[in-house]
Nucleic acid binder design. Sequence first.
DNA 1: GCTTATTACGGCAATCGTAATGATT
DNA 2: AATCATTACGATTGCCGTAATAAGC
Lengths: 300, 300
Amino acid sequence: MEMRQLRYFDSIVKYGTMREAAAKLFISEPSISQQISELQKEIGLPLFEKQGRNVVLTSEGKQLLPLVQAILEAVTELETGISEILNPGSGLIRLGVIPITRLDLVPKKLTEFVKIYPDICVELIESGTLEIIERLLNDTMDVALIAANSRIKSLMELSGIKYKVISNANSVAVVSCSHPLAKYEKISFSQLLDERIILRRQGIYREEIDNFLGDSVKHDGIYSTDTYETSIKLVDSNLGIAIMPETFISAYGLNEGSKIKILFLDDFQVSLDICFIYKKRNYYPLYLTNFMRIFTDTHD
Amino acid sequence: MEMRQLRYFDSIVKYGTMREAAAKLFISEPSISQQISELQKEIGLPLFEKQGRNVVLTSEGKQLLPLVQAILEAVTELETGISEILNPGSGLIRLGVIPITRLDLVPKKLTEFVKIYPDICVELIESGTLEIIERLLNDTMDVALIAANSRIKSLMELSGIKYKVISNANSVAVVSCSHPLAKYEKISFSQLLDERIILRRQGIYREEIDNFLGDSVKHDGIYSTDTYETSIKLVDSNLGIAIMPETFISAYGLNEGSKIKILFLDDFQVSLDICFIYKKRNYYPLYLTNFMRIFTDTHD
DNA sequence: GCTTATTACGGCAATCGTAATGATT
DNA sequence: AATCATTACGATTGCCGTAATAAGC
């Protein structure tokens, strides 16, 4: 099975007759005819049948056509990729990230990327989820890492933004070691009800937590902070129990000597996904698709 | 650029050295070397460079490798497709549909499918959205058409069901011609508040409507029916104003002589998508992928 | 000296084109 | 008679393998 044969196959379908296909391909009619016979013999299936003096697709041909076209499209993409390397463009990637969450992933992935593309410039933009989506839409940002709930996912679908989930923003509770709950490894929802809860003031993560807590926790039982760092400082002073993404903790790597304790949540979870997102469009430069590939490759 | 060259390229990367790749491919070392030089000359880029006595990928090679692999994978799929036609399996497609909504689409698409696959049996299963998802998961159903809100979409994402939006379940209001509102072409939300509203009793569509209406319409102002047909009968008797998917109306083709009037909704919409869904898996038979292709092809 | 890649060269297979034949309208 | 596909056949291309050469460890 040769590329040539697939191209001939596709062209015959495209132009209707072997004659015309041959003309468009600048080859003789017997060549195309012979190649198709060859192909049919090799795969053991008829692709065309005679209808009058023309040829038309058989049922088998109809079934296989899209698979052949998929190959030819992949070839076109390779050719595009080659010409991109030969004629390099600006070479700037504007990467949006929400503050902190999973920021630990970025340096690792960027290191990997820079090895292949030492000349591509990556601009890191920290911003809120909605602002990031806005910037993707008006083309002042190329790709981003955000945390998304289902509302954000619907919003993205409606506005033509594609997302790939790369991990979950599981939550943990954080308390001071001198807090009564510090003796546990896990805690359940009911144990939270009488505690003072410390949360980050805004963002999708807070929104989800609020949805979950609902009216069960009275509003004056909540401390709001602007950053997770501040939340941890409050915990350190034993002012309450903080709920935050596990990834924040692992990114900050609280060590053994720390005065705070991490508690896993037994019976509730914030359903937020860490997503790699980008605007849906017809064409992406090769360095961008490879950038995406590296970031959405979660095999490590 | 020949298939052979791409295969050689891929194999060298896979096996590390030209020697081993040549051995695995049952060809001589000079052949593979020559083909790679040929390929590099053609595309004008170095793919490998010497490192000691071995060859390693250049930066360009690293960039292009995934594109080449995409081609080879597409070829594998074609080969799989061919062998499927040669060794046909059971050939049964179990298609789930939710009652009524967009059922008008099914016969049209099935007709198209049967032309290519006269021997494949299609079993139509009418069921509720959640039951359909359940059946997809336990493999008693292959594909389905449902209406999904964002909650259902999240559910599907979590449970490994893929969905493709093929249209929107826009809602319209339906009133008797003798109803006071029948003089309008469009109505707004505020005009609904004092009306008796007729809705289907259950399902995702009802769920969405309930979410939207919230507490603004008092509960005793709602009539529930089991089918949209019944809703229309109630409207016919001027018992209230029904809200239902536009697709139901167009499927049933209410003609000119009808005593009911369709009103478009000016300032609110149910955000439900008609989705073609299937379980994520490694392998789909060719007739199934073509079935999906036909159903998700919205160019008509 | 052993391993790995590249060059040189002859044999063989495969593609292409021209010309002739076949089939349909 | 005109259009479109297929068969026949010779010329050319180009792939492959063996053998020889070059380069690392």
